[in-house]
């Protein structure tokens, strides 16, 4: 009896898939900032995915997956009625939310997905929420409309200028501050390099904040320690101590290199899959 059936799915942007999946316990329990560990099939990896939102009444959670390697490409092929074999969670500490006042949320690419529930929660706590959503180009930007609903003001930017301001999220942040707006707190989620650069600028501008880290994980409950990150010179386990940490204190360069640890093996896995599918394709072709 599959427990985690996909109720609906759509493509949010190129290679970015949204799923609403059955997971009643998690839907009831999840808080902003938490994640789940997902395993697609009995040979699959355990992959951490942030919970983008949930519907406790219908027992559904919303997962947003960007194709990056074999497992996520396979996930992207799942259709309504298919299921994820295992989903465990909600894991990690929920976002620490205070009434900071003026808040700036900065999302890079698919980072807009995990940031959304945090923005909702921050808004509910009485903050004035501003958001910068950045993507390489318009076809890769996701959830901009939802941000517009939840934020006092949203600014978009893209590398190629196809949507919003032409430039990086850091340019956008500098610009906003130069207009005389004072931000008391920042929430930054996106690719690690984007988080590193944004945290650097935020520090320069004197804006403290949080980033949500996405290291390699296996169990997600503190057991393996694969997700070690350095924060203010101390080793932390992202799964049980995070995933959110002090933006000013994270050693992003270490995280970038740790996340590259299996690049070669990931390529082997992908090539093997493609090769296998090629052969199946050829065989069918011959039979026809």
């Amino acid at each position: 009896m599959p427990q985690h059936v996909i109720h609906s799915r759509r493509i949010l942007a190129e290679k970015v898939h949204e799923f609403w999946v059955e997971a009643p316990l998690i839907a009831r329990k999840r808080k902003a900032g938490q994640f789940v560990i997902v395993r697609m099939n009995d040979r699959g990896e355990r992959i951490p995915l942030t919970i983008a939102s949930g519907d406790a009444e219908r027992g559904l959670i919303r997962l947003i997956v960007q194709e990056a390697g074999k497992s996520t490409i396979e996930m992207g092929r799942l259709q309504v009625g298919d299921f994820f074999l295992d989903i465990a969670g909600p894991l990690g500490r929920p976002t620490h939310i205070e009434t900071w006042g003026n808040l700036i949320a900065v999302a890079g690419g698919v980072g807009a997905a995990p940031l959304l529930p945090i923005v909702e929660a921050a808004r509910a706590a009485g903050n004035r929420v501003h958001a910068i959503i950045g993507a390489r180009s318009e076809n890769l930007m996701i959830l901009a409309e939802e941000y517009a609903r939840h934020c006092h003001e949203v600014r978009l930017c893209s590398d190629d200028g196809s949507v919003g301001i032409k430039g990086l999220v850091t340019d956008c942040l500098r610009q906003w501050v130069s207009e005389g707006v004072q931000f008391n707190q920042s929430l930054i989620i996106g690719p690690v390099i984007m988080m590193r650069e944004t945290a650097k600028v935020a520090k320069e501008l004197g804006i403290p904040g949080q980033v949500s880290l996405n290291p390699i994980m296996i169990d997600g409950t503190g057991m393996c320690g694969a997700c070690r990150v350095s924060v203010n010179g101390k080793t932390k386990f992202a799964c049980v101590d995070g995933p959110e940490f002090d933006a000013w204190g994270v050693n992003f360069d270490e995280l970038i290199l740790r996340n590259r640890a299996y690049l070669r093996q990931e390529k082997i896995a992908l090539d093997t899959m493609m090769d296998h599918e090629c052969k199946i394709g050829l065989a069918t072709g011959v039979a026809q």
């Binding site: 040979r43 497992s71 296996i218 393996c224 093996q265 990931e266 082997i268 896995a269």
Partner: peptide
């Protein structure tokens, strides 16, 4: 855990490397 639970000894048949 990689070797036993996740089947890394049978990578790439299993996904965990």
């Amino acid at each position: 855990t990689r070797a036993n639970l996740m089947g890394a000894m049978r990578f790439p048949e299993y996904d965990t490397p």
